[in-house]
Design a protein around this nucleic acid. Structure first.
Length: 584
RNA sequence: GGGCCUGUAGCUCAGCUUGGUAGAGCAGCGGACUUUUAAUCCGCGGGUCGCGGGUUCGAAUCCCGCCGGGCUCACCA
């Protein structure tokens, strides 16, 4: 859930039991029969922060055969990459738990019974939306006209975007659960123990020097009018299953039987612990904005114990993800947010996962779409290479193991890299960015070009390369700084050539005609000969680049020529040669 | 005002739980190879670990204080 926090010292309910029980769990893995070996391996290989959280969760629930982990977000606006940290954090811990032989249930609660409180800057039909303020986001019409509600619009977009990342939680929509009466018992418990809840919250407020207290007759209820749908309602509770609701807006009155469900819910601070108890949640992370004393996690952990007889879940706190350049917290109400789908345009799913898996959750980091994209891909490729190296008993083994574990958690299919196996040889993002431009973004041609030259082999590698090529093209067209842009001239231009350059260009043309199409090495050898004969290629290069790509510099010439092919290259180069056609 | 997180090389971060002479990648510089935005490989430089105290034989690590940055404390989720 979006709240909760840990920050490792603050709220941890009971610390002090770890050792014995951790050992117990590690060796109770079952799958690994040989005692000490299994443990040693566990401790060195399952060493990611998600593993630590998993161990802690197991230690807190000894004997439980099924562990429930949960995430939750309010779709009150575009669900962005910052919200994604919640989900990926749970996903990673879920995997770490599954690796320990536990049956894991991954719940994802959409808090779509929330009140529509502000109109996002980027929403269409703002005027109409303003009139909906105060209703449930699950009741507000979709201003984009695509879904049955405002909430569903954002939910659908996000659910679709995490599919490619291999994240498949069990989604729950709070609006439906409440309306169906599923939480009736939990609501009644909260209402009957309203005094306990008031005490907990007020005690917390006192401790924090709050300026106001909940009144003694406060009811832990929120909801919407059955007639008009707005949240300006009052409640009267009969002590059992019935709540009398009065609307201050349309004057509608009526009784709601909690068992039948309806438009009533618990306020956030109570809703959260109620669901912990209802779903038996063992782990749920929280954003740093909910970490403080007196915050919702703080009171929720008391409420869940005293009202619902369950203990607060284990958690890790995560910091914000910000957009490089934009600075600060990503806010869905400000518009211009970055979504998971946006990120997947530029980053392969595994790379995106790797980014989140690599940072400790409690550190803030920036997601970037500028030249950093190249660095990130290069770092990723390097990590993959490192992970494939066999261990050799040196200190570097620790890094190899860490890389393997992080990459396994980052992979979409949870594939483990076996040390000593040959690493894949992906084409670098930077290079791909050049290639893809040479073909004007025609990915099919990029692929056949690469396959013909045996730079990519095998169906898997091809699929991976194609995906990366698409990302590279998206990056080039949408984000890359100007210096990365290359564009092959469509039509040849005839440029006046300095007298000393013309013969050189003629020689180059001759070489191209002579060497088999696409034979980069052959070209290279002939160029070398040319230089050895005393030709000053430094004079030639700028001219050639200009004729080809309208710049004075460019990718390594032999690669460029080999890539664009003889026909196109000759057409572009010969145009300037006409007056001085010498011998080839 | 209370609480939590955070401040380590130019940049991004690891190390802090279980004190023992400061780490990685990138960038920079040098070299090899290669005829040039490049790739790969080798090497180098670079940090008073925010500041000040304390504990200790020894502190980036533990404790206290201060400064800077972030978040939070609302019948909001």
């Amino acid at each position: 859930m979006i709240a909760g926090q840990d920050h490792h010292r603050g709220f941890r309910p009971r610390s002090g039991e770890p050792r014995a029980e951790r050992a117990c769990h590690a060796s109770a893995l079952g799958a690994k029969p040989c005692g000490t070996m299994a443990r040693a391996e566990t401790e060195t290989e399952l060493n990611h922060w998600a593993d630590v959280a998993a161990e802690r969760t197991l230690a807190a629930h000894p004997g439980l055969t099924r562990i429930t982990v949960a995430a939750g977000i309010t779709p009150s606006g575009v669900v962005h990459i910052g919200n994604f940290r919640e989900v990926i954090t749970v996903d990673l811990v879920a995997r770490a738990l599954a690796d320990r032989g536990v049956d894991v249930r991954f719940l994802y609660s959409w808090d779509d019974f929330d009140v529509f409180r502000s109109v996002p800057a980027d929403a269409p039909k703002a005027d109409a939306l303003r009139g909906e303020l105060g209703r449930s986001i699950s009741s507000v019409p979709d201003p984009w006209g695509e879904h049955d509600s405002y909430a569903t619009h954002h939910i659908a977009a996000f659910e679709a975007s995490i599919g490619p990342l291999g994240i498949r939680p069990e989604f729950i929509r709070q609006s439906r659960a409440y309306r169906a009466g599923r939480y009736a018992e939990g609501m009644r418990a909260a209402l009957q123990k309203a005094d306990v809840i008031v005490r907990i919250i007020n005690t917390s407020r006192e401790k924090n020097g709050a300026r106001s207290m909940l009144p003694a007759d406060w009811l832990p209820l929120a909801g919407f009018c059955d007639a008009c749908g707005y949240d300006d309602v009052g409640f009267r509770y009969d002590g059992d299953w019935t709540v009398h609701v009065t609307c201050n807006r349309c004057q509608h009155e009526g009784d709601t039987d909690l068992r039948r469900g309806g438009n009533l819910k618990l306020p956030w601070r109570v809703d959260w612990p109620m669901r912990w108890g209802y779903e038996k949640v063992c782990f749920e992370p929280g954003g740093k904005d909910h970490s403080s004393a007196g915050g919702s996690y703080d009171t929720a952990q008391h409420i869940v114990r005293e009202v619902y007889g369950w203990s607060a879940p284990q958690y890790v706190g995560y910091d914000f993800v910000s957009l490089k350049g934009a600075g600060g917290k990503i806010s869905s109400s400000r518009g211009g947010v970055v979504t998971v789908a946006d990120c997947l345009e530029v980053y392969e799913p595994a790379v995106l996962r790797w980014l989140f898996a690599g940072y400790r959750p409690n550190t803030e980091f920036q997601i970037s779409f500028d030249a950093d994209a190249i660095k990130i891909y290069e770092d990723y490729d390097r990590a993959v290479r490192l992970a494939h190296e066999p261990d050799d008993g040196t200190a570097k083994d620790a890094k190899r193991r860490a890389a393997r574990r992080t990459l396994q958690l980052a992979s979409v299919d949870h594939r483990k890299i076996e040390p000593g196996t040959p690493p894949p040889e992906p084409i670098g993002f930077r290079h791909l960015g050049v290639v893809v431009q040479i073909f004007g973004g025609d990915i099919d041609r990029v692929m056949s070009h690469l396959v013909e030259r045996k730079m990519v082999a095998g169906a898997l590698a091809e699929a991976a390369c194609r995906q990366r090529a698409v990302c590279a093209w998206n990056w080039i067209t949408e984000h890359a700084p100007e210096e990365f842009h290359y564009r092959l001239r469509e039509d040849p231009v005839a440029k006046p050539l300095p007298p000393e350059v013309a013969p050189l260009l003629a020689r180059l043309v001759a070489i191209i005609e002579d060497v088999p199409d696409g034979d980069e090495d052959g070209l290279g050898a002939r160029m070398k000969t040319l230089a050895a004969e005393g030709a000053d290629l430094k004079l030639l290069y700028p001219v050639v680049y200009d004729l080809l790509i309208a710049r004075d510099k460019g990718p390594k010439l032999t690669s460029l020529l080999a890539t664009i092919g003889r026909t196109r290259a000759l057409a572009l180069l010969k145009a300037s040669l006409v007056p001085t056609v010498t011998q080839a």
